[in-house]
Measured scan of single mutants.
Amino acid sequence: QVALSRTQVCGILREELFQGDAFHQSDTHIFIIMGASGDLAKKKIYPTIWWLFRDGLLPENTFIVGYARSRLTVADIRKQSEPFFKATPEEKLKLEDFFARNSYVAGQYDDAASYQRLNSHMNALHLGSQANRLFYLALPPTVYEAVTKNIHESCMSQIGWNRIIVEKPFGRDLQSSDRLSNHISSLFREDQIYRIDHYLGKEMVQNLMVLRFANRIFGPIWNRDNIACVILTFKEPFGTEGRGGYFDEFGIIRDVMQNHLLQMLCLVAMEKPASTNSDDVRDEKVKVLKCISEVQANNVVLGQYVGNPDGEGEATKGYLDDPTVPRGSTTATFAAVVLYVENERWDGVPFILRCGKALNERKAEVRLQFHDVAGDIFHQQCKRNELVIRVQPNEAVYTKMMTKKPGMFFNPEESELDLTYGNRYKNVKLPDAYERLILDVFCGSQMHFVRSDELREAWRIFTPLLHQIELEKPKPIPYIYGSRGPTEADELMKRVGFQYEGTYKWVNPHKL
C-alpha cells in the first residue's frame, strides 16, 4: 500500500502544474464570482478556492472578487462561507491571508454602469489591468444573457486571457439551449467557454479513460460480442427537503440524466481518441451522441416518491408533501431510460440510465454486464461477469466473477477481482471535483468540460421526450421513500436483457 498525506498529494500536483506551459504561476489572475451571495458560491466555490489557495495550487498573485446585487462586505462573505471551509486552528494565518486577497463589488446584473465599476475595481488591483480574468457564473440561467453581454462589453482583460465558467442547466430543451449557446458564442470563442459538469471532475469518471485505453485486457472485450448491457446509475437517499420548488422546474431527467449520466455513457462508449488533447476527446464523445436516436417512450419509466409510513423524519414525507412543490405536480423524481448506440461496436446493446431521489442508498456507478459463458459445464450455477466502476461513495473498480467454492467439488461461487483505489492508495485525500475543474480552467484544459456541439446532441436525444411529458403530463409511478424505485423499472431492465441475480454482496474494501 502507498500512504500519501494531503501535503504529498498537493506537492505532486504542484510539480505537475508548474512543469506545464499552460499554468502561468507568476502571472496575476483575477477570479470573479458572479452571484457571490448565492448558495453555490457559499457552499462550493469559495470553499474550493480556499482549498486550492491553502494547498498552494493557485497562481501566487490571485485575487478573488465577488459580485452580486446584495450590498455585502468581505466580512459578510466570510461569515456565510467559512463554515464550509473546514479550516483547522493551525490554518488561521493562512485564512487571514486568503481573505486579504478577497474583495466585493455590489451591482445589478443588467446595468452597464455596475460592470464599469467592477472593471475599475479590477484595474485598481495590483497589475489588475493586465491580469488573466476568470469569470464564474454562479447564477440562474435567466440572467446569463445580460451578464455575459455586460462582461464582454465592460470587463474583459485587454492583455491577459479571459475565460468564463457556465453552470448547468444549459437551457431547458434543445431550442433554449441553442439560443443560449448562440448568444454566448457570439461574445466569446469556444476556447474561452467552460460549461461545467462537476461529474466530469470526479476521480473515477476520469479513471474510465485510463482503464479503457491503457489496459490491453479490456480492449478486445469492450464491444457487443461480449457486453450484454451497460447500466449507469445515480441514486440519492434523500428527497427534495424543502427545495422542491427549484427541482420541480427541471425534474430528474434535466437535473441528472441528460448531463451526468449521458457524459458517463460517452466515456464508456467512445472510441479511442487520437490523443488526450481536449478536442480529440470531445470529438469522440460527440460521435457517440450522434449514434444515439431520440428516446422512445416505451423505453422510459418515470416515478415519484411517496412517504414511507414506517419511516422516520423526512422519510415519512412524499414529494408532494414538500411545501415548495406545486400542488398535484407530476414532475418525476425517478427515471429509467434505455438508449442504444447504433454503431458497429455497440449495435443492440442497451445502455440503461437510472437516477432518482429518496432511494435506498447513495450511489453513482457504471456497471457493464457481460454475456453468459458459452457451453456451460457447471449446471447453470454460473452468474454473469460484471465490471463495476463505483464513482461514489467509496470509489472502487471491481470485476464480479466466478471462482471455485472451497471444498471437494467443482462448485462455482461469485467473488470479485478488486482493482480499488483504496487498497493501493491508503487514506489518500484526493482533490474534489470542483478543485480539479477550476484548476483545469486556470490551465486552459477543456477536456472535462462540455463543448457546444456535445451539448446540442445531448438535448436532441431528450427534448422530444421532455416535450411529450410536458404536454401529456403522465402521472409518475409512486414508489416508497427509501425503496429501490418503481418495480416497473426493474421490469424494463429485465425486458431489454439485464439479469439481476441478487445473490452477490459487494464487500467494501475500504472497511476491511
Rank of each mutant, 00 (worst) to 15 (best):
R384D: 00
L302V: 09
R495M: 11
Y434M: 01
N423R: 12
N308D: 15
I469L: 13
D372L: 01
V441I: 07
E413V: 12
R495Q: 11
I377E: 07
L368T: 03
F334A: 08
E271Q: 06
M402W: 07
E361M: 06
N411T: 13
Y305T: 00
F334H: 07
E312C: 12
Q258N: 03
A336K: 06
Y319E: 03
D321Q: 08
Q263I: 03
S452G: 14
H260A: 03
M402C: 10
D440C: 00
N423V: 12
Y305G: 00
E501T: 13
C355R: 00
I377T: 10
T333W: 03
V397K: 00
Q296A: 15
L261C: 07
K287V: 06
K475E: 15
V428Y: 14
L267I: 11
G348L: 00
S278I: 00
N277P: 04
K429Y: 11
Q380K: 12
I292W: 00
P326G: 06
L439R: 13
C291L: 14
I352G: 04
G422S: 14
N423Q: 12
E413W: 12
N411R: 08
E284C: 12
R484D: 01
R282S: 04
R456I: 05
M401V: 13
K363Q: 03
L492D: 00
D321H: 07
G502D: 15
K405C: 12
V349C: 05
Y500M: 07
N360S: 08
V306Y: 14
Q263P: 04
F409W: 11
L465W: 13
L302P: 03
Q296M: 13
V428F: 12
R254S: 09
K426Q: 11
G356K: 02
L419G: 06
A335D: 01
P273S: 04
G485C: 05
H379L: 09
V366K: 02
L439E: 08
N259K: 03
E284D: 07
K287S: 09
A489E: 06
K290C: 07
K285W: 02
L261D: 00
I389K: 02
F334G: 00
L465M: 11
F410R: 09
K272T: 05
Q369G: 05
K404L: 05
G497D: 12
E386D: 00
M401K: 01
L339P: 07
G303R: 00
K383T: 15
N360C: 05
H379K: 13
D347A: 11
E271K: 07
A335V: 11
A297H: 14
G311D: 11
L387S: 04
V306W: 11
C266K: 03
L320E: 07
K317E: 12
D255S: 03
E314H: 11
N308P: 07
R484P: 04
V450D: 03
V268R: 02
L267S: 07
P393V: 02
K505E: 13
I253F: 06
K272Y: 05
L492I: 15
K363H: 03
Q304N: 03
P326I: 07
K505W: 10
P273E: 03
E491R: 13
H379N: 12
A396C: 11
M447T: 14
R345A: 12
P431S: 09
I292K: 03
M257R: 03
E413G: 08
K426V: 10
D440N: 09
M270I: 07
K426T: 12
H467F: 11
F409I: 14
Y319T: 02
T333L: 02
Q258R: 02
K404N: 02
L419F: 07
F378T: 06
T331M: 08
L359C: 12
E454D: 05
I389C: 12
E472K: 12
L339W: 03
R495T: 15
H467V: 08
M264R: 04
S275H: 04
N308G: 08
K272A: 09
R495V: 10
E386T: 04
P476E: 04
F449L: 04
V388Q: 01
L302M: 13
G375S: 14
D372W: 06
V366M: 12
I389E: 00
Q392W: 01
I469A: 10
R327E: 15
N423M: 12
T330D: 09
Q381H: 10
P486D: 04
C266H: 03
C443K: 14
I477W: 10
G375I: 06
Q468D: 11
R390D: 03
F370I: 07
S275T: 12
N298M: 13
Y500E: 01
R354V: 02
L261G: 06
K287N: 10
K383F: 09
H448M: 07
L339H: 08
K287R: 11
F378A: 05
S445E: 12
T330Q: 13
W506L: 05
R282V: 02
F410K: 08
E294P: 11
P350S: 00
F378H: 05
K357T: 00
A332C: 11
L465K: 04
N299G: 10
L359V: 10
V256Q: 02
Q380S: 12
I253M: 13
P273I: 03
V388C: 11
E416A: 05
A297K: 15
A274C: 15
V268W: 04
K404T: 05
E395A: 11
V496Y: 12
F378V: 05
G313C: 11
G318M: 05
S293D: 11
R354W: 03
H371E: 08
D490I: 08
V441W: 01
R484F: 03
T463P: 04
M264C: 06
I480A: 14
G307R: 15
L492V: 07
N298H: 14
D490V: 07
E472P: 06
A297T: 15
T399P: 01
L262D: 01
R254E: 00
V281H: 03
I469E: 08
E491M: 12
N385E: 00
F334T: 04
M270R: 00
I469V: 13
T420P: 07
S278K: 05
G497E: 08
Q468M: 11
L267C: 08
V441N: 00
C443G: 12
N385P: 04
V373Q: 10
E501R: 10
I377M: 10
Q446F: 01
F370N: 02
S278H: 09
I477V: 11
L267M: 12
R460I: 05
T399W: 11
Q392V: 03
K400I: 06
V295L: 14
F449R: 03
E386G: 00
L471G: 15
N277F: 11
D347E: 14
F334N: 03
G318K: 06
W459K: 02
A489N: 06
A297D: 14
E294D: 13
T420N: 12
